[in-house]
Amino acid sequence: MQPILEVKDVLKKYSDKIALDHVSLTIPKGTIYGLLGPNGAGKTSLIRIINQITYPDSGQILLDGETLNLHHIRDIGYMPEERGLYKTMKVGEQAMYLAQLKGLSKAEAKKQLDYWFDKLDIKGWWNKKIQELSKGMAQKIQFVVTVLHQPKLLIFDEPFSGFDPVNANLIKDEILELKEKGATIIFSTHRMESVEEMCDYIALINKSQKLIEGKLVDVKREFRTNLYQVGVLTDDIQRLMVQLSQKFKMEQTSFKSLNNELQLEIDLGSAMPNELLHLLSANGQVTHFMEKLPTVNDIFIQTVSK
């Protein structure tokens, strides 16, 4: 299937520094795509280019196979990290205005707004000014104006920063629902927990260069450590330890358990898991056997600090 967005060899320089150094990305349709990187890596620069707020010095961007142009503004919904609304404008008017700027007709905008206000249970806010709303309430409005023109591509820059847990959860569910309906979502973030949970694909940008890109599971596979956490109930710890140390590198570890077992982290090296399992089961009762997967956070730190 054709990817919704292709970033091809994009170069962006500001007078004294390079913001994006020949970055290429492919974002498949209908996925949640995590754009990761430390602060100042170039994420926001890239997003601004995708939104046509700024333009690349060289390189190309294709949306749905077409070179990015002004018509695509309608197809993209963008919630910037620095978000805000007109404080003295009424919620309804403001949302109508922003929707019309995106190219919706008045009637369409009203219809969409009614749908979302109903869905998020914020109908009573129509005539309130933003400055009368709490921060969390304003964030809901912010989310609505980002999605209400039904864009194919949604870009959230640090989507959960500043949201309280209840609202963050609500927004998360809405985002997943939008994905179900066929939208593609780009998350730009340096908070890894949300990525772990939601993203299908990730790309890692550091110091204006793309370092990693791919399906989250593939990336994790690539970074797998072959470390296994095991728990064994055994009568003869001494013997087990001797046997194990002949074959594997290992160290003591601890994880939550209801048994009072021996807890180890074992580096499998080139061996197969079954070899370890056999050895363990020959010496006692195996209560825990699990591959220690690299977290996105691990991958992030490992790659960035390389």
Partner: peptide, 9 residues
């Protein structure tokens, strides 16, 4: 108000 980026997108 930080709305500027929303508008100019």
């Amino acid at each position: 108000n930080r709305i500027i980026e929303v508008i100019i997108s």
